[in-house]
């Protein structure tokens, strides 16, 4: 128990001494993870779309050859970057560039190198996820889009990709969380993210375990926040489970049917004439309803009067 108390004290002491260093690391980790995941997704989408362009035996030879070539290149890219450790990819790219250019070209900005490595790595995973996402959308959706005359690009942009993105949201989330953690290996090329902060602080204070405890808590907080955020986004994308029926009454119809009525149209609330005419219409209906009620009451009275008549008749009969 006293060990736990001591750990608490050590953590507090470490935080007091180098809290800003840790926070700086957290910020760098998050920025790198977000940017690299976004670029990785972009790479993945481009690869996924290129891979799924259909071709038939009727297409000209050059088109078939080009599409085949694209598929082969993407295949190689995916297999290489999915099949080697990211830590090695970082070293390979970071030291490879100066090696091949005799030091003429170097990564002067460590951010560029880090984002490049993580993006390319994420892209190789996302390429397959996106391909899967596109395949998972019912072929009927493509046929429906083609039947109303959409081109391949229009079909992709308006129909298939919005559904594919929803389907692969869990995958994107996976990659984001993996990136938050795996960017820790970027210390190998000297990128000062959250884990590098631990190395620095622990090296200076020799308090390896308390610093590692801070790291554990820090990473867990980041990933938990990320998964919460992603769940929320998925919910948002699904939209509401219910919908509003648009009634036949003209006023509610206007409200439901025309979400954004154009300026000057009869349904534009900013158009005073339209509002006036709508109000006039409503007043007219109100008057009609009142009239109908009045008529009804009159009829009622007349009927009541009618009930009295037999009495008078009877009297007369007497």
């Amino acid at each position: 128990m006293d060990k736990l108390a001591q750990l608490g004290q050590d953590i507090a002491a470490l935080w007091a001494r180098s809290g800003s260093q840790y926070l700086h690391g957290v910020a760098n980790t998050l920025i790198l993870a977000v940017v690299a995941t976004a670029i990785g997704c972009l790479i993945g989408f481009i690869c996924g779309i290129l891979q799924t362009i259909p071709y038939t035996s009727r297409d000209p030879l050059w088109k078939r050859f080009l599409l085949k070539l694209i598929r082969v290149i993407i295949r190689i890219y995916v297999e290489v970057f999915r099949g080697t450790p990211m830590i090695l990819q970082a070293v390979f790219i970071f030291y490879g560039l100066p090696y091949f250019t005799n030091n003429a070209m170097q990564f002067t900005n460590i951010w560029v190198a880090a984002i490049l490595v993580v993006s390319i790595n994420t892209g190789s995973y996302m390429a397959e996820s996106v391909r899967g996402g596109i395949i998972s959308v019912d072929p009927g959706q493509t046929e429906g889009a083609m039947a109303i005359g959409m081109t391949h690009v229009q079909t992709m942009v308006h129909v298939i990709l919005p559904q594919a993105i929803r389907n692969i949201m869990p995958q994107i989330g996976n990659n984001f969380i993996i990136n938050i953690k795996d960017t820790s290996i970027m210390f190998i090329i000297g990128f000062t993210e959250f884990f590098a902060a631990h190395k620095g602080v622990a090296g200076a204070t020799y308090k390896y375990f308390p610093s590692a405890a801070i790291e554990m808590i820090g990473y867990l907080c980041m990933t938990l926040a990320a998964s919460f955020l992603l769940r929320w986004m998925e919910k948002k994308m699904d939209g509401s489970d219910s919908y509003e029926l648009v009634q036949d009454d003209s006023l509610t119809m206007t409200a439901g049917t025309y979400n954004h009525p154009g300026r000057g149209t009869p349904f534009d609330e900013r158009n005073p004439e339209a509002v006036k005419s709508m109000l006039r219409e409503e007043l007219r209906r109100q008057a009609e309803r009142d009239e109908a009620i009045r008529q009804g009451q009159l009829a009622e009275q007349r009927r009541e009067g009618g009930i009295h008549t037999p009495n008078t008749d009877r009297k007369e009969g007497k």
Binding site: G140, Q141, G144, A145, A147, G149, Q163
Partner: peptide, 22 residues
């Protein structure tokens, strides 16, 4: 082909409405 298809409508057995749209 796309332009031609826009002039020839089609209604499918399985509806094929776009699921991501109202």
């Amino acid at each position: 082909a796309a332009k031609y298809r826009s002039k020839v409508g089609m209604v499918f057995q399985s509806f094929n409405l776009f699921n991501n749209m109202t």
